[in-house]
Amino acid sequence: MNVSPPLLKFRDPDITAKGEKRAQVAFGGLETLWVNTGTPVCRSLILKLWLARQSRAALACGS
Rank of each mutant, 00 (worst) to 15 (best):
M1D: 03
M1T: 09
M1L: 11
M1N: 08
M1R: 08
M1G: 13
M1C: 12
M1K: 05
M1P: 12
N2Q: 12
N2I: 02
N2A: 07
V3C: 04
S4Q: 04
P5G: 12
P6F: 09
P6S: 03
P6T: 03
L7H: 05
L7F: 11
L7P: 00
K9H: 04
K9Y: 05
F10H: 14
F10V: 05
D12E: 05
D12R: 05
D12A: 02
D12N: 14
P13Q: 04
P13W: 07
P13M: 06
D14F: 04
I15Y: 03
I15F: 10
I15H: 05
I15R: 14
I15W: 05
I15P: 02
T16H: 07
T16G: 01
T16V: 01
T16M: 07
A17D: 14
A17I: 02
A17K: 06
K18D: 15
K18G: 05
K18M: 13
K18P: 00
G19S: 11
E20N: 04
E20S: 01
E20H: 05
K21S: 15
K21N: 08
R22Y: 01
R22G: 04
A23V: 00
A23Q: 02
Q24N: 10
Q24P: 00
Q24M: 08
Q24F: 04
Q24V: 06
V25Q: 02
V25T: 07
V25A: 06
A26D: 14
A26N: 07
A26P: 10
A26W: 01
F27S: 07
G28W: 03
G28Y: 01
G28C: 01
L30P: 00
T32I: 14
T32C: 10
T32L: 15
L33I: 15
L33Q: 14
W34T: 08
W34H: 06
W34A: 10
W34M: 09
W34D: 14
W34S: 11
V35L: 14
V35F: 03
N36S: 13
T37E: 06
T37W: 00
T37I: 03
G38E: 10
G38F: 04
G38K: 09
T39R: 10
T39F: 00
P40M: 08
P40L: 09
P40N: 07
C42G: 14
C42L: 11
R43C: 04
R43N: 03
R43P: 03
R43V: 03
R43G: 00
R43F: 01
S44H: 14
S44R: 15
S44G: 15
S44K: 14
I46W: 10
I46V: 15
I46L: 15
L47S: 14
L47R: 15
K48P: 07
K48F: 10
K48W: 07
L49G: 13
W50V: 13
L51S: 08
L51T: 07
L51F: 11
A52M: 08
A52E: 13
R53E: 09
R53A: 10
R53W: 03
Q54H: 09
Q54A: 06
Q54N: 09
S55K: 06
S55N: 05
S55C: 01
S55G: 02
A57M: 06
A58V: 00
A58S: 11
A60L: 09
C61Q: 09
C61F: 01
C61K: 11
C61Y: 01
G62R: 04
G62V: 09
G62N: 08
G62M: 12
S63M: 13
